[in-house]
């Protein structure tokens, strides 16, 4: 670790000067924390956009779904697209329904179970994409301050070594080293605070969207089970 020339650099305490004065480890910590901050804000922007879009799609789909439009028709229009969210669950359930009827389903209970499975799988995949990378926000939020503190401790250590070398305890000699070291903690906090806030916000939003998907899946499952009953009931009667 190189000795920092404290007394000479004491005149300039602007941000850039502080960064340039810092030791190698402190610089590394600062750069890492800067990267974390960039990543945090990238995620924040990304998630904000994604969630806004997802919410809009859900609203739109529910509107279409409950508009009284034929489910077959809806399925035909949606099947060709890449679907997300509620639409994806709907398409997965309809596909399973279609496949089962094309091959001639024997048991209504088996069919019901298969449809539920298909919907669960799709829902899990959807919620995974919603919550993707939220954990990294949590990590930055909790570890950021510690990383910054580590940089500070190393920086103060270095500056104390320099003080011991300069044999002066003058505040003008001590202050710049400590200011530079504290910059690391400051950057750590700058990265961590938005990360924590964003994590709380987005995990809450993801929970709400998941609940909405589950609710839709249950309702659709109920509708399909009614349909199965209606379609499979006449057959034994007709057969009889």
């Amino acid at each position: 670790m190189e000795q920092v020339e404290l007394a000479a650099a004491a005149t300039d305490v602007s941000l850039w000067a502080l960064f340039m004065q810092a030791g190698f480890i402190v610089k590394l910590v600062m750069l890492g924390l800067l990267g974390a901050s960039v990543w945090t804000w990238a995620l924040v922007i990304d998630k904000a956009v994604t969630f806004r879009k997802a919410q809009r799609q859900y609203d739109h789909f529910e509107q279409v779904f409950w508009s009284g439009q034929s489910l077959e028709e809806l399925y035909r229009t949606l099947a060709e697209r890449q679907n997300t969210g509620l639409a994806a669950i709907f398409v997965a359930a309809m596909r399973e329904w279609k496949k089962s009827f094309e091959r001639g389903a024997r048991s209504p209970i088996g069919l019901q179970m298969r449809i539920d499975r298909a919907m669960d799988v799709t829902m899990a995949r959807e919620s995974e994409t919603l919550e993707a990378r939220l954990s990294s926000l949590a990590t930055i939020g909790s570890a950021g301050p510690f990383v910054g503190l580590f940089g500070t401790v190393v920086g103060i250590m270095t500056s104390f070594q320099a003080i011991a070398g300069s044999k002066s305890t003058n505040l003008a000699v001590v202050a710049p080293g400590i200011a530079e070291a504290l910059l690391a903690t400051a950057i750590g906090l700058v990265a961590a605070i938005p990360a924590v806030i964003a994590y709380n916000k987005f995990s809450g939003d993801a929970g709400k969207l998941n609940a909405r998907m589950e609710g839709f899946a249950d309702e659709f499952s109920a509708i399909l089970s009614r349909q199965i009953d209606e379609k499979l009931q006449p057959r034994p009667q007709a057969a009889q």
């Binding site: 901050s37 960039v38 990543w39 990238a42 990304d46």
Partner: peptide, 20 residues
């Protein structure tokens, strides 16, 4: 994601430059 990452980098660079 790429777009948001780029946006974030841009904003950071801008803020840092302003701070400097």
């Amino acid at each position: 994601m790429k777009g948001s990452l780029l946006t974030s980098v841009a904003v950071h660079v801008l803020l840092l430059a302003l701070a400097m």
